[in-house]
Simulated scan of single mutants.
Amino acid sequence: MPDSPPVPEALRQGSAQPWRERMPLPPMESMTPQQRAAAQALIDGPRKGVFGPFLPLMRSPVLLERVGKVGEYLRFESALEARVRELVTCAAARHVGNQFEWHVHAPLAVKAGVDAGAIDVLRQGARPTSGLKEDEALALDFAMELLRTNGSSEPTYERAVRGFGEQGVVELTTLVGYFVMVNWLMNVAHTPAQASAGDALTPFPL
């Protein structure tokens, strides 16, 4: 396969120098039958392709399948509304500085109904103070506290249960954890953002 065009410095993720994509998609001719089956399942499923965290996960096809199933539920079947899911996914990507997931999910958040100005404030590293609906603000506060403290205070937890129910809190927490996990994997693998990505994240965590 020909080398991919160089990725702009602002869209790279992971700090090791010199920078290189460590785990690109393996060439088709070198894939094992298990890898080919895993790739085909992704192509045939709701994602319609092999990209993002599934590039490094191709090294472990069984893990890819199981991680993929968890992600399918959280992204496409969760009890949480799409607006809430996409906003929280952006918060997780922002927290760990993952360019790929940010550039996938920020437009999806806006498309789902999250205020574009609030998303841009989050991109710059701040907590939006206007533009968010009540459930969005509640979910963002829960997610940011979880990312910051590795838990949830009693007041934040009680508000989240009132707003989303216990199932919603479980799925909200798992959504944060899932995206931190795949973001870490891409940061380690130096999976680049798409070449067409827009404004990059600033390098400072929330």
Rank of each mutant, 00 (worst) to 15 (best):
S60Q: 02
E72T: 14
L63V: 07
R83P: 11
A79S: 10
P56M: 07
L87R: 01
R85Q: 12
D44L: 12
Y73P: 00
G52W: 01
A82N: 15
G71K: 08
G49S: 11
K48R: 15
P61G: 00
S60A: 06
G49C: 06
L55T: 10
L63M: 12
R75Q: 13
R66C: 10
S78V: 07
L63G: 03
I43A: 10
L74T: 01
K48F: 11
R83K: 14
E72A: 14
E81Q: 15
L63S: 08
A82L: 15
I43T: 08
L64E: 07
E86F: 09
V50K: 01
R66T: 08
K69F: 08
F51Q: 04
L57C: 04
I43L: 11
A79I: 09
E77P: 00
M58K: 00
R59K: 00
M58T: 04
K48N: 10
G52V: 01
E65A: 11
G49I: 05
R75L: 15
K69P: 04
V62D: 11
D44A: 13
L57V: 07
A82Y: 14
P46V: 15
L74W: 01
G49K: 02
V50D: 03
V50S: 03
V84F: 05
V70K: 06
V62K: 04
L63Q: 05
S78K: 02
L74Y: 02
G71P: 03
R83V: 12
Y73R: 11
L87P: 00
A79L: 07
G52C: 04
V84Q: 03
S78G: 10
G68R: 10
P61K: 01
G52D: 03
L64A: 07
V70L: 15
P53T: 01
E77R: 14
G45T: 09
P46D: 10
R85A: 10
I43R: 11
E81G: 15
F54E: 04
V84A: 05
L63T: 05
E77I: 07
E77Q: 14
G49P: 01
L74A: 06
I43G: 05
P56Q: 05
R85I: 11
G52H: 02
E77Y: 11
P56T: 04
V62Y: 05
R59D: 00
E81L: 15
V70E: 11
V67F: 13
L74M: 09
V50A: 09
V62H: 07
F51T: 03
P61A: 02
V84E: 03
S60W: 00
R75H: 11
R83Q: 15
S78E: 06
L63K: 00
A79W: 02
V84S: 03
D44C: 06
K48M: 11
G71E: 06
G49V: 06
R59H: 00
L64P: 02
V70G: 12
Y73A: 08
L57P: 02
K69W: 08
I43Y: 06
E81Y: 13
L74I: 05
